[in-house]
Structures are given as C-alpha cells and as structure tokens.
Computed example of a mutant assay.
Amino acid sequence: MSLFASPRFLSRVMAADAVSCAATGALQLVFGSVLARWTGLPAPLLLATGVFLLAYAGAAAWMASRALPPRRLIGLVVAGNFAWAIACIGLLAVAGSSIAAPGWAWVLAQALVVLVLAELQWMGLRHTRATGPRPLAA
C-alpha cells in the first residue's frame, strides 16, 4: 500500500491544511496593520483573507476529523487551493510594484504551501479511489 492510499492520509493532509490556514489567518487578523506596513499589502485584504482563512480552517478541521473524509468536498478544496495559488500570482502580477519584498515572500509562501497541499490532496484522492473498496462479485 502506498503512502497516499493510507486510510488516514487525506485526513492528515486536511489537518495540515487546517493548521496552516488557522495560523496564517490568525496572524493576518491579529497583526494585520503591522503586516500591512511590513509587506506593502493592503490591510483590508489581509483582514478579509484572514477571516476567510479562519473559516476555511474550521471546515478543513471538520473534514480531517471524519473517519472517511468527504471526497467531493476535498475535490472542491483541491480546486480552491489551486485557485488561491493562481490568485496569489495574479496579485503579484497586478500590484507587485507596490508590494515590498517581505510581501512578495508572504504571498509566494502562501502560493507554494497551497500548491503542495493541493497536490497531496489530489494524490490522496486518486490513490484512495484506485484502491478503495471493490464491489462484491455476483
């Protein structure tokens, strides 16, 4: 059995997703004005995405707590993580000249983390489908 086909693999990846989003969201809410000055990112953007990340972290934690993670929801998470990474790159493309170097690092780190998580989630979905329960022969 591969690592990705482990019964707990998707739950563990969703838990990692929840923890990373909770940490990032909390930092953006608690230190939003400091982060805005340091990164050059707009404070309202940091606040709004911080709230979203905390709400998402709760949903991801719920998915991680399931004995059988909800495959369709995790499929949506994969798409959402890829969309988040694209949005990060889009932000840098559109407003990159007004964002300080630490802001570039903050945004690129988020893009990288969600890409890694999306890939792990996708691989977990693919392997659990391929090795999931087989129908009984008649």
Rank of each mutant, 00 (worst) to 15 (best):
M1E: 10
L3M: 08
L3P: 01
S6P: 03
P7C: 08
P7Q: 15
R8G: 11
R8C: 10
R12F: 10
M14S: 09
D17G: 13
V19Y: 04
S20D: 05
C21L: 15
A22R: 04
T24F: 10
T24G: 13
Q28A: 14
V30Y: 11
G32K: 01
V34S: 11
R37Q: 15
G40W: 00
G40L: 06
G40I: 08
P42A: 15
A43N: 11
A43F: 14
A43K: 13
L45P: 02
L46H: 04
L47Q: 11
V51C: 07
F52I: 12
L53V: 03
L54Q: 07
L54S: 02
A55H: 05
A55M: 10
A55E: 00
A57G: 03
G58P: 01
A60N: 02
A61G: 10
W62K: 01
A67Q: 15
A67M: 09
L68G: 11
P70N: 15
L76T: 07
V78F: 03
A79D: 03
G80S: 05
G80C: 03
N81D: 14
N81Q: 15
W84P: 02
A87T: 10
G90W: 09
L91H: 12
L92M: 12
V94N: 11
G96R: 05
S98L: 12
I99K: 09
A100M: 08
A101D: 11
A101G: 11
P102D: 06
P102W: 02
V107G: 00
A109E: 12
A111G: 14
L112H: 04
V114S: 05
A118M: 02
A118E: 00
E119D: 15
L120M: 13
L120E: 04
Q121T: 07
W122T: 02
W122H: 12
M123Q: 14
G124F: 02
L125E: 04
H127A: 15
G132D: 05
P133M: 14
P133L: 15
R134W: 10
R134G: 07
P135L: 12
L136C: 12
L136S: 14
A137G: 13
A138T: 08
